[in-house]
Write a protein that binds this DNA or RNA. Sequence first.
DNA 1: TAGATTGTTAATCGATTAACAATC
DNA 2: TAGATTGTTAATCGATTAACAATC
Lengths: 210, 210
Amino acid sequence: MIEKKKNISMAVIKRLPKYHRYLQELINNDVDRISSKELSEKIGFTASQIRQDLNCFGDFGQQGYGYNVKDLYNEIGVILGLDKRYNTVIIGAGNIGQAIANYTKFDKVGFELTGIFDANPKMLGIKIRDVAIRDIDDLPKFLEENKIDIAIICVPRISAQRVCDEVLRGGIKAIWNFAPVDLDVPEDVTVENVHLSESLYTLVYQLNDK
Amino acid sequence: MIEKKKNISMAVIKRLPKYHRYLQELINNDVDRISSKELSEKIGFTASQIRQDLNCFGDFGQQGYGYNVKDLYNEIGVILGLDKRYNTVIIGAGNIGQAIANYTKFDKVGFELTGIFDANPKMLGIKIRDVAIRDIDDLPKFLEENKIDIAIICVPRISAQRVCDEVLRGGIKAIWNFAPVDLDVPEDVTVENVHLSESLYTLVYQLNDK
DNA sequence: TAGATTGTTAATCGATTAACAATC
DNA sequence: TAGATTGTTAATCGATTAACAATC
């Protein structure tokens, strides 16, 4: 059983998906075991950091041996919560919303797209991978009738906070936000931002800096 | 003139676009001046951190007064390099590639989409906002004939490193990478990753943690 | 057993916050 | 001038790295 040792820092949490991805790759390459040193060379973190990170969640390794790749992959999957399924709704069926809706990979790892909502009447009824676009006014009723875990906000900046308030009223506790604003939410709600402009601007800074 | 004081840490750089965004908003609201304390309350960083961050690049404030919003906005724009124009190419015209291509906002702030490339022959010639999709085999020639600043990689995981190597040969020094891999590049090249899965997984971890 | 490598403590490094003199 | 707020140094906090005893 995985026992969290204490409060895990955000720095550690942000590295977990990367471990997961590299371990997946090792499995694909039929690697059975790996030491923190070998993993360090691949992933680019220090061996020390890898051992520290993993020890936040349990003793997954074995002295003199290293880590069993498959076991560690599964453990990290459980830590991240990837062993469960999640119902999602996308709000805003513009460029980004459609791209996410069409991104079949998320389906495969347990994220089910349950609804897509848009304010534009012209979009209503159009299907994206078998999910018809609904009127955003139907969102409150939909959230009442369905157990939704994650709202994916892809609306323009100006309507993002309004949509956010709406999904909060619907009881949602996790928001994946693509709108270029910092959403105002209560403490028990998690927002993960994908701020594309900020990412691009950071790139440009570095481009000029070199 | 902006004089960089020393090596700026990545933590500071990643905050710059957020300053830029909040200052834009203040301009929209006709706010002329702001103190680090007021900005702190809006943006959620400490006033101390804001002053420290800005002082990496110069003395933009005035004791007893605070900062001139418009000036500071422009200064940060220059620091980020947003006063210049950049030519971009998108490689991979799938969901994400198309979404980025259609994202008109980047055009407006100086990022010109010069070419879109895809390996799928069915896509060739299709236009996205006046830019026709070209064959990926024509990329080397295109990079030779055009001065491209930024390559936006939106191809599947499996072909990302190959495409990356190709743009490196074409002399590109900045890559915005949407493929779920860590690209291998020489030291003088900057890669900024948008790893959507990692972002989603981090959200899920936090959802379960609360 | 001997060698390898973990788990974990201690040391170091860097980033954030606090404090305050400088100055508008 | 007095009040406000910066720029900047010093203190604190947290995260990373190093070291090594434990142990497989």
